[in-house]
Design a binder for these strands. Structure first.
Lengths: 378, 378
DNA sequence: TCTCGATGCTAAATGCATTTACCACCGGTT
DNA sequence: AACCGGTGGTAAATGCATTTAGCATCGAGA
């Protein structure tokens, strides 16, 4: 009769069952219980013994105390996710989400820490997780950049997420170059060959690896693709901060200055949002009079009317990949995660069936198949 | 000569220093080292001994192994944050942020787990964190609601965050009733007495405690305040989902149906966003021709033009408070966290100095001072 | 001289799971 | 009769910090 013994399951206060309890119930030694439960090979216990131990463990609902186990095995089945502010920004919380998903799949738990970019906190965070013997650490940043990491015991595995670091080789980044190319292809494929402007580009950013390791690549992809398609920009509007009001101001000024603007390449969705506002104010219909394409696939992009076509940042896939790399000893190198092109309705269909449009379409397909399946997909 | 011994700090691979190492270097027993480092009272060690132990610990950079310590003390200085999807939504990641901040302050580390609302995962998550001996668990939800929680060892402390549960009494919630009142006051204080419509309200939601424990309170506050100020609604538009396109559709239909609408009470910022779009399309200027006030203080609210006046959800403060309650054994009960009124430019200044406006202003001030300082503030 | 209470410190147990080293027994050899 | 190679296990050590129980030593008082 199962469940007849006195263990009321109400609000259990009894001590957790230990391996010794299981062994006792099975009538064997803790050694036997441990060996059997862990399925150690080349151990000569009888089928009888196996059955009894498993039955006892099941009956008592035994779960090993991970802390105690770690004392001997040095494995805690826990990893740390240390970031500047990643976890709590709507923007990049996908990184965490992916990491959480993959960690769970691997039976690991994630310690999340935020450093706010302050070195002192970073040091503290590292100490804190090392004190808890994590199996590995993921260092993440919100804006991809080169991240300083202090010395670590060399047994600690490390993966850089949306960041790079010369010492710890494994890093996961969005494939910004391909993303930049795709944005251009999208416009060209729709027949745009003239009147293309760039909103948000900034030469200083481009040269400042520390600030953003990947934006430079995005812009490089953008420019290369333009060049290879024989296209050029009618304007490049710069700003440091990619916030909506900058997008608004830059676009407003641009539209008031010249009337030949037909397409806007915005460096992110927030800038694009501002561009929408400027267009609306001037009675210019996005997706008809002017095309807009941007980057990130912020939630924002789907709220806009018409929906914003954008090159998404594959945060979830990146988070997943980072954990995967952390837990499988991968060799150093960059993992570039493809950026999905998310087509909505902000690009006008010009209907022009030019050779250019055709070529752009081919190239876009090519990019889409680079890398095959998204690493994040199952 | 400090630092002359062979411990190259390059990529340290040496084993972590243990308490025994410290004791040896200090020429004392591990007992002494432990007692001294933990500052145990009523222990009669010489000043000499204290100095030697501290010096040794400092020299070796000793840090206790938390797992080993937990084996005896049952305290891991770790807490769990288990939620449906809170951690990874831009919307409520403030909850996590606040929790992380406060946990850090208390020297605790946070295990973040997501259950996607699936009971099986929830059970797994609980087992996983219990296996790691967390000191307490915070259960959070994105939409405040009544949350089912399985049995837990009664030594495990629990706080419900943005959720309630009959068994585990301590819960932290936004003060939605006051928030609802404030929204109405804002409109009335600006001179609106007629033409006020509600966007998103839904009677079914109001009755469905499971779906959202707090929305009912928000609406109750709203209605009570309207009644107490002698105001009434010209329309109430319902929808299940509070997404921008619903706000757009509801508002568009409303504006096309009647021309006496002067103020919109939107149930959240996303609906308000849709309302902005509908107004823009019709040439109706928000903040001049029509006033809009809503709830959440989404990032969105600051992107809009004109800026959206909204009653904010105090996520960060809530997260902090939850950790504070978890770590200080507070007695059961609800902690209502004040919702900040965030004034931007979406409310038209009618200039009408009615008695109503004056009363509303008084009431608003009253609400603002309820609870005094925000609990989250230092 | 003997006892007593501080004083200053340590040995050993403890928590829990893992792991190494070894033991007892059996049937069969030589 | 002594030996041997399986079989089927167990005792004890280990990892690390905490904590209980108690051991010397010393000066003072009786």
């Amino acid at each position: 009769m199962p469940g007849v013994d006195g263990d009321e399951r109400g609000l259990m206060s009894a001590k957790r069952t230990t391996l010794a309890d299981v062994a006792r119930l099975a009538g064997l030694s803790p050694t036997a219980a441990s060996l059997i439960l862990n399925g150690k090979p080349d151990t000569r216990f009888s089928a009888e013994a196996h059955a009894r131990v498993h039955a006892a463990a099941a009956e008592l609902g035994y779960r090993p105390n991970i802390g105690a186990r770690a004392l001997r095995t040095d494995r805690t089945l826990s990893i740390a996710f240390i970031s500047d502010v990643v976890a709590t920004t709507r923007f990049a919380s996908g990184l965490i989400q992916g990491a959480l998903e993959e960690a769970e799949r691997a039976g690991h738990v994630v310690l999340v820490m935020e450093t706010r970019g302050e070195p002192a906190r970073e040091a503290e965070a590292i100490e804190a997780v090392l004190d808890r013997q994590v199996d590995g650490i993921i260092f993440g940043t919100m804006r991809a950049r080169e991240l300083f990491v202090p010395d670590l015991p060399d047994s600690t595995r490390v993966v850089m997420l949306n960041a790079t670091n010369p010492r710890y080789g494994v890093s996961v980044l969005p494939d910004e170059e391909a993303g930049g190319r795709a944005a251009v292809d999208l416009l060209a494929a729709a027949g745009h060959s003239e009147g293309i402007a760039l909103i948000g580009q900034n030469d200083e950013v481009e040269r400042d690896l520390f600030r953003s390791a990947t934006v430079a690549r995005r812009i490089h992809g953008l420019r290369s693709e333009l060049a290879e398609l024989g296209l050029s920009l009618v304007a490049e509007e710069s700003c440091w901060d990619w916030e909506p009001h900058h997008g608004y101001e830059l676009t407003a000024a641009l539209l008031d200055r010249r009337s030949d603007v037909r397409a806007l390449l915005c460096m992110n969705d927030r800038l694009a949002f501002g561009a929408y506002q400027a267009c609306a104010e001037r009675g210019i219909a996005v997706g008809r009079d002017v095309s807009i394409v941007s980057f990130d696939d912020d939630e924002l992009a789907s709220y806009l009317r018409p929906g914003l076509t954008t090159i998404g940042l594959p945060h979830v896939a990146m988070g997943r990949e980072a954990v995967r790399l952390l837990l499988s000893d991968a060799d150093a190198g960059e993992r570039l995660i493809p950026m999905p092109v998310v087509e909505r309705n902000s690009i006008a269909a010009t209907g022009s069936e030019s050779a250019l449009a055709w070529r752009a379409r081919q190239r876009l397909e090519g990019l889409r198949h680079v890398g095959g399946e998204r690493p994040g997909a199952l």
